[in-house]
Computed example of a mutant assay.
Amino acid sequence: MRTRFAPDRGLTGRMLATTFLLGLLYVAFAGALFVLLKSAVLAVVIAGAALFAQYWFSDRIALFAMHGRTVTPEEAPQLHGRIDRLCALADMPKPAVAIADVDLPNAFATGRSPAKSVVCVTSGILRRLDGEELDGVLAHELSHVAHRDVAVMTIASFLGVLAGLIVRFGLFAGYSGALGAGRRRDDNGDNVAVLVMAVVAVSAVVYAVSFLLIRALSRYRELAADRAGALLTGQPSALASALTKITGEMSAIPTRDLREAQAFNAFFFAPALAPGVALTALLATHPPLEQRLTQLSDLSRELGQES
């Protein structure tokens, strides 16, 4: 889909490199499974079904989980007006608009394609941000829609889902075999046990590596969306202000609510982290706040604005 969102060749190159590594990992994993099992049809079918459901129903699943509902222009005229203007600037079709009635200040975009996408904001973010800050957040989310980030991340996660399922199947099979070990002590039983453990070990390594690669891809797409959204509005400082304000306001949200929302961090504009939760850079879904603010400050200077 053609839009006026500015490309970022450096970040795009890093995302392509990460995706290429995921592809190589998938090929190696498929080869190892073929050598070990000669067939992995059941796991592939189940993982494929999970991937299809996540891809096809991602907008409904995310809205249901966050208690969001789509709103009409009559119900939220100002929010629709802002998205209308930003979509016109970006030369892209308008997504559905939703509001989640929760105090957590955040926003997210989901959907398998620009034509089937939703941009959702929480009532908490609407109360806390001014107009320019909200425009920056909405432009960030529209960049995710324009670049089909939800579809990219869903497809990229297929290998991790598959490996995770095989690990679970293998551990269950190993547990079942342990229960029957007293009844069967032949060489064939030992060979099956060794094969199961080999598959579990390979799958666990693949799951761990793919998890780290997907998290890296997620961080790259957040930086790309920050840059594209800031260039679209021409106000990097407003987006930086929104980031700072939302991160600071997280401390006022009950810890229980933050922990419940952490499962959706990959969707969010800013991660919901409860006090005391520390994630290493390799495990985070989003870049550090300082890195995002530094990028926006550099962009302000590029545009001849004060940092």
Rank of each mutant, 00 (worst) to 15 (best):
L134G: 02
N191H: 09
D149P: 00
A242C: 03
M66V: 14
V277S: 11
R215M: 08
E290N: 10
A240I: 00
M250L: 05
V97N: 07
T122M: 10
S113N: 11
F52L: 05
G10C: 04
I61S: 13
A62S: 06
R227W: 03
K245W: 00
F29K: 02
L195R: 08
Q295K: 04
P7Q: 07
V196W: 01
E302Q: 09
V200F: 02
C87Y: 06
G10S: 12
V97S: 05
P105S: 13
G304L: 04
S143C: 14
Q291Y: 02
A178W: 15
S39N: 11
R292W: 04
A178D: 14
A181F: 14
V161A: 14
Y26M: 12
G170T: 06
A40H: 07
L37C: 07
E74A: 15
A204N: 05
L142A: 01
L283M: 12
D135S: 09
F57I: 07
D59S: 09
C120S: 13
H147G: 11
F169T: 08
L289C: 04
R69D: 15
A193L: 13
L179S: 11
D226A: 05
V150M: 15
S203N: 01
L89W: 07
V102I: 15
I46T: 02
D186P: 15
F267W: 10
R128A: 14
D130S: 05
T154W: 00
I246W: 00
K38P: 06
A266K: 04
Y220P: 01
A284W: 01
Y26H: 13
R215K: 10
S176F: 12
L223P: 03
D186E: 13
H140F: 01
A107N: 04
G182W: 01
D103A: 15
V194C: 07
R112A: 08
E222D: 10
T3N: 02
A225K: 09
D8V: 03
A107Q: 05
